[in-house]
Nucleic acid binder design. Structure first.
Lengths: 242, 242
DNA sequence: GGGCTTACTGTCAATATGACAGTAAGCCTA
DNA sequence: TAGGCTTACTGTCATATTGACAGTAAGCCC
């Protein structure tokens, strides 16, 4: 390590968020249309620089979450995703981005217009399709975020984070099908979900209404690790993790 | 986001490494005795600041790996672990650490003395035990690294990274037992490991010698994802991932 | 050749999974 | 109020995987 006169380089630290949710039975991500250069006008993940010297990274993530998506810290899953620090990823200089993955419950149609009303939900397939080029390396970050979500659905109770405080088993199955992009057998899904002790617990003898027979409601249970894991059929995605 | 006069704070970016290996059938980590303040004299994970403005993060990780452990980029697993950016984690100022997880094959007893001869291997249990207080938040980083390694052993072929270019099934079992801290049934292990197609492939009809019957040698196969995963018995560790 | 050590090969019961079909409970319409 | 429609569940059976356990094979040492 260098001795004394050496001054290590400084970098700008950004926090970017991959905010996923389920809308219309599709996995969607929150994107923002950039109002400033670079990539002005392009779509990007919500994010920004540290607001001040002493701001904690996860605090910054929550702040962005609130500012740009109007989402409070409750009823929301937030975890580290990774860091992205290629030297030329930002034309303004050396910017290293700390990426977080957030999963929000199904939200009402309109985007909360707290601050950035330029926010919009977009199906991830569309966001990653060639046309809507995301700014910076955000396509890569998004890809990693989706990959992470897919993996965690297998082994953790993350799926419940896509649902509201109570949900039906069908709704939960919807989550799995949308995120994994597969079709699951409802009967086996029922069996599996209920056999994992503590995954979901009955929420009152309550019911709910759509077309047919009322469904029982559940809440997320104490168990956060699924064992044995949910088995994912030949997903269209098979890659090695980061 | 702020408009013009606003200047986002800069941070110092460090790269820290959790380098794991197997020695004496125990999971060990490479630690360095710090030669400079802060935490002078304390044990710490190898790492350091970016060497220059344009250095890529993974390049910096490889550089540290080489400088502090004498490990080249070959035959070595390296992956992102996470970022650690609590405001007060480094007394010198705002330092954000990008942590990497490296897994090295079994190495000869002596520590490669390329640069920092103050490096030493230490069993992770000892490194995390109360006494040998690691500098900064390195205990947390190490804990996360171990957790990651344990998880990846289940679903990926990471275990082979602990072994040399060729290895026996027993040696591979050793890896699992040491990292997970459990005992596995050799017969079931044999069956499982060989039933996952492409996990390990025979390396010549070669053999090897210890006490008893010579063992067949294998090389890592093309398959990096294990499906179905290796099943880990009631490990002493059960936590939710980051 | 006997005894020791490590390497492997098999068997069987318990468990989890995948593939299907049938019943239950609402609402809507006639 | 009796279909008929829709969604919600409950069961069954063949198959795949796991966990538990015992026996054979192939070296070395004496």
């Amino acid at each position: 390590m260098p001795d004394d006169r050496w001054v290590p380089p400084t970098v700008l630290l950004a926090v970017d968020l991959v905010i996923l949710t389920l809308r219309q039975s599709r996995l969607q991500v929150l994107l923002i249309q950039r109002g400033i250069e670079p990539y002005r006008g392009a779509l990007a993940l919500p994010g920004g620089f540290l607001s001040h010297d002493k701001e904690d990274l996860s605090a910054a993530a929550h702040r962005e979450l609130s500012e740009e998506a109007g989402l409070g810290p409750d009823e929301l899953h937030l975890e580290q995703l990774g860091f992205y620090g290629a030297p030329e990823r930002d034309p303004r200089g050396r910017v290293v981005s700390a990426a977080y993955l957030a999963v929000a419950p199904r939200l009402p149609e309109p985007v909360p217009g707290t601050d950035a009303s330029r926010a919009c939900w977009m199906p991830v397939t569309q966001a990653l399709a060639g046309e809507s080029n995301l700014a910076f390396d955000h396509a890569e970050i998004l890809t990693d975020g989706i990959h992470r979500a897919r993996e965690k659905l297998e082994r953790s109770a993350l799926a419940t984070a896509f649902c509201g405080p109570t949900f039906t088993i069908s709704e939960l199955q919807d989550v799995y099908e949308a995120v994994w992009g597969v079709t699951l057998d409802a009967r086996n899904f029922y069996r599996k979900v209920q056999s994992v002790d503590g995954f979901i617990v009955a929420a009152g003898p309550t019911r709910k209404n759509v077309g047919g027979r009322p469904a029982r409601l559940f809440r997320p249970g104490p168990r956060t690790i699924l064992h044995p894991p949910m088995s994912r059929p030949q997903g269209p995605t098979s890659q090695e993790a980061t």
